[in-house]
Amino acid sequence: MATIQVFDPALCCSSGVCGVDVDQALVAFAADVDWLKQNGGQIDRFNLAQQPLVFAENAAAKAFLERSGQEGLPLILVDGELALAGRYPRRAELARWAGISQLAVEAKPASGCCSGSGCC
């Protein structure tokens, strides 16, 4: 099964609670990560403020930071290869990468086209 790695930007609270507005994308993504794990997916998250060493030791993440800076985060690697950057993936994308049946995704069909940014 494919391994998904998520490199989060440095945030005091990645929940966004410390900011003036709460980032709904982070909330939704946290829930999607939970869902994926419950369905047997392999996914790890790394926070730049807490585990910078992981970024430094991962060639792809390090090169990405040098090129795009932390404004470019999050960065998502699937089996070490760049899969997505600059936004969090949707549940359907996670399922596809992890090779989890689409049936399991059925609970949230709206997360397909046009529901998020960068699509359509």
């Binding site: 403020a49 430094a56 390090k62 930071l65 040098e66």
Partner: peptide
Amino acid sequence: RIVGPVRGVLPETVVKGIEEQLSG
């Protein structure tokens, strides 16, 4: 302890950002 190992490894601006997160 957190930032030391990546100083000079990750870009300077990134290191600065991490330090600020840990300065509250």
